[in-house]
Design a binder for these strands. Sequence first.
RNA 1: GGCGCCGUAGCCAAGUGGUAAGGCAGAGGUCUACAAAACCUCUAUUCGUCGGUUCGAUUCCGACCGGCGCCUCCA
Length: 509
Amino acid sequence: MEEFLTREPGKAAIYVCGPTVYDVTHLGHMRAAVVFDVLRRYLEFRRYQVTHVQNVTDVEDKIIARAQAEGVSTDAITGRYLDDYQRVSRALNVLPPHVEPRASQHIPEMIEMIERLIERGYAYHAEGDVYFEVTKLPEYGKLSGQLPGELRAGARVEPGEFKRHPADFALWKRAKPGEPSWDSPWGKGRPGWHIECSAMSLKYLGMGFDIHGGGDDLIFPHHENEIAQSEAYAATRPFARYWVHNAMVMVHGEKMSKSLRNYIAVADALQRYSADVIRYALAAVHYRKPMEVDEARLEDAAKALGRLRIALASAGTVQARAGGGGTGGPASRALQRAAESASAAFTAAMDEDLNTSAGLASVFDLVAEVNRVTDQVLKGGTDAAETMPGLQEACDALRVMTAILGLRLEDAVDEELAGRVRDLAASLRQEAAQLFSGEPGRTLDEVVAFILAGREKARGKRDFATADRIRKRMAEAGILVEDLPTGPKWRVASTDGRRPTADASGHRA
RNA sequence: GGCGCCGUAGCCAAGUGGUAAGGCAGAGGUCUACAAAACCUCUAUUCGUCGGUUCGAUUCCGACCGGCGCCUCCA
């Protein structure tokens, strides 16, 4: 394990390159968001005080092009897509950054940096443009391994540019007609792309902050250039202590990207899969490995997640039977040991460069142990009380680990479902007063218990036709009942946290 | 052309210089009125290919084959 030494003990200052808001948010953006969200949650779990800064690029060529194409202002474009990004991030349980600075609101800071870079001799002014001169910095290329002399010579010198070296990059671009622009010592213009991240990270975190993150497609030139201009500006090193780059999301072997138009919008994915499923799918692969995303991947994630949820539901049934008491029998002790070793293995995996795949293996090891124990109880071999308090500890451990991955594991218990179950209870009372007596109660648990009690009466009389009918109607309402030797157990019917839909279950790629 | 990454069972996916986690799918069994879930057992002598280093390599080195990313905006 590479040792993680922060600038200040116990504190972690993180800057992540956020979205350029000119189009809808796709799963590639959310992979990055989820990776850094997991990193943040894990560091917080490890008791670091985390400061997470993530920029929004709202000054950029594509935004201008889009605004012109639609005949609207750039603000209209950036507002629309920033809203989309924030909305889907929230939906996926991504914690909002502590600071979310926008490039358009930090122009003075960028101008100040550029002026200093010119003073120091690292940048030059030409015809309203300002460029950073990479050959002035011997270390240029240290992050990406790219050396100025090796860059494809002259491959890309745009017309109207006045670079001294092909690898020199724009700090400031003079205004073209119809574009947003700001006054500067070099005339009207707008900042180059790279300078915003230097200006904003230094403003909010200062030189030598702990982790700089972003997609691995940003390593060169973006992050290389950030290092160059920041270290030249500050005259100290390092700009950032650690670099964390997530790999791309792939579609049929190609990077998912806006320009290739092969993306899956997160908002669309959320129509078909729960946030937990999407997060699980994105977090189940190590962050540095490119990941193909397709229907099968999401279906697999939904099933794996179902296994986790079912284990917790079974545990809930057993805990209810134990009624709060616990005798700490062998089953309890086995669960305590399993919870401890799974937690330790999970932490070790996450310490090792955020190995979420290995971490999930620990989660499922504990799931298996929980299932072994609840299976014994539900089949009548073990008394429920003997599993406590170990079962509770195991469930707590599962919740802690999955919460670090940002999984909510909530049931889709909405009012609609509760209402349907209440209606069912009411009509059953009408139809079979001999089975259903008393009041159904108010909460979902109470109402389900009411129905199941009546159904057990039918089963006791070996009236399986009635029992089957009730079970079927409960399933239609969204409650799945399983009969076990020691009595019924139930859970909300879907295992991925949302009600199954014809679309989600019927369509296959 | 330069820089870098990847290739592990039917699929997805960790991993280690000493003999392959986990998820999905599959087979058999247990439980069971039925259904469902769970549990138990099994499923890669083998980690793209060929060489090399080593007592020993999937793990290190080299070559090759195949795939990908960046070098232009991009998470």
